[in-house]
Nucleic acid binder design. Structure first.
Lengths: 304, 304
DNA sequence: ATAGTCAATAACTTTCAATTATTCGTTGGG
DNA sequence: CCCAACGAATAATTGAAAGTTATTGACTAT
């Protein structure tokens, strides 16, 4: 089978007209070209040039081959470009699934910024519960997951990338605004928006209550921090929100207060062990980690 | 730049799933494949396979590259096929121009037979005077010319490929049929169809007359032997025809007689020195030479 | 346990493309 | 007419890429 290199040399000689010219263009010596031409002629079995008065004139066959070879070069360049793009992570597909806390406000911002310099990426951003995160990753529907609750699954790798805390979100002017630090147990006495007992956040908060022998009370049950946030924003009451949910979108109508006790939460990235993680996914993971941990970057995303 | 060979190995491993399988398919050893994969990964700068439990799983990037590479392989195969076809002379373009004597009846037959075994050739068969033959060849519009009169032109190579003679074509039953050999000078006394004085054939015949101090007389002037032949065929008179014009198409209604004096004519092939002669043209030239000189072949074309 | 499968590594070998140095043929001024 | 200039071809050698055999090490299934 004819080599691409051979065709390159052939085309160059046809184009430039002389072996010396082709050699210069290809960055090799003249004999290299001369030998290559002879070698190709041996290979194809018919003359590609007419030697006359010390000059080379391409035969119609050689021209024909050269013409066809152009497409081959184009393809090779194309593959080369794609590899470069894959290396730079500027092309490909990225499927992310995230828990709503981060997925609702911050993730869209991060994704938007990430793709700004990588215009040829196609992506999908899915929101879902921890179970859905697990599902998407083990089935290969997503390459990268974000979750507060670290999913427990043998086929998944979980890495914490940032830490945050639970905050109490209160409508401006609410009675709780007066205290610098909101006692979690006090929420039982106000219009409290909280999470179903079965949910990870619900259990997290429940453990504070049960430790004190008190039962958590709330008048409004939601599944996602984003929903809780919207409700608080509408003045429907106070809610505990993880700090990640507050990132990315300024909420001037909401007052935030640290809680007592302090509850630390961590954001985890999740990847599957069943499939190799794509280069883009790794890059995005890194991008998010940097955005969440570099103070300069945090400011960019309005992270308090 | 990535080599085609490297992509071949990559694709084979992705397809077959194992280095050993790929090695077998590619006809090389397993370590060759293993080394190549590592080498490609060094080259592209990101992992193409995930090594796990002693198995290789391709990353999405590797799959992407492999997919693109398919087009590259297709192009390479295409170029390879074209070279094979060019070697066999079974593809390409052949532009022939011939003087009408041969071009009218024999050449179509020869061309038809030549292309039968080379179905992918596209061709053009032009008829023209010697001047037109010269023109087509020096301008590159034709690669191969056939002419009775050898064209005189510095940029053209002329080779005689077959000899013939002038014959007298007479309608069956014509008074001249009685003689075994027709005296050219006698044509002055019958309904004579002949060629313009300026044409090569005209000059050729004229020289016989002028040698005897007689002026050639004819009642019908034509430019081409083929026209003369048609007129004879229609019973319009007698004409001198070169033997090549009689080849290829049986004319039962015409009687042929040798002439006195005997005039030998030769068929020449003409090629240009300005452009390299294509492989196909050379093949066709050879094909025609064989057809005209091999008795067995001649019979096939009804050459008497 | 053990045989079998598969990838990786080490140490050479082969092959191909490239190098430098040189020769040979053609051509265009002085 | 000769000579310098240019271009192609050849010879001898080098270097890098791709391939070899032999072997090891990790994992799997019986």
């Amino acid at each position: 089978m004819v080599r691409v290199r051979q065709l390159e040399v052939l085309c160059s000689v046809i184009e430039l007209g002389t072996t010396a010219g082709a050699a210069e263009a290809l960055g090799v010596s003249q004999p290299a070209v001369s030998n290559m031409i002879r070698h190709i002629e041996d290979l194809v079995g018919f003359p590609l040039f007419k030697r006359e008065k010390g000059r080379l004139t391409p035969t119609p066959e050689a021209r024909h081959i050269a013409q066809e070879a152009q497409h081959l070069f184009a393809q090779q360049k194309r593959v080369g470009r794609i590899i470069t793009q894959l290396r730079g992570g500027t092309v490909g597909r990225l499927n992310v699934i995230a828990s709503p806390s981060i997925g609702n406000a911050l993730l869209p911002r991060l994704v938007s910024e990430f793709t700004r310099t990588r215009p040829r990426i196609t992506l999908s951003v899915e929101l879902g519960s921890v179970d859905e995160v697990i599902n998407h990753l083990v089935s290969g529907r997503a390459e990268l997951g974000f979750s507060i609750t670290p999913p427990r699954h043998a086929a998944l790798s979980v890495r914490p990338i940032s830490t945050g805390e639970m905050l109490c979100a209160i409508p401006n002017g609410h009675e709780l605004c007066s205290s610098e630090r909101v006692k979690i147990l006090d929420l039982n006495h106000v219009r409290h928006i909280s999470y179903a007992t079965g949910t990870p956040l619900g259990q997290m908060i429940d453990s504070v209550y049960s430790k004190n022998g008190i039962e958590r009370r709330y008048y409004c049950e939601v599944r996602h921090t984003s929903t809780a946030l919207e409700l608080v924003s509408a003045g429907a009451g106070a809610a505990l929100i993880d700090s990640f949910a507050m990132m990315g979108k300024p909420r001037p109508e909401i007052t935030l207060r640290p809680t007592d006790p302090h509850i630390e939460v961590a954001l985890h990235t999740v990847t599957s062990n069943l499939f190799p993680t794509s280069n883009i996914a790794l890059q995005f993971q890194d991008f998010v980690r940097k955005a969440l941990n570099d103070p300069e970057q945090r400011a960019l995303y309005g992270i308090t």
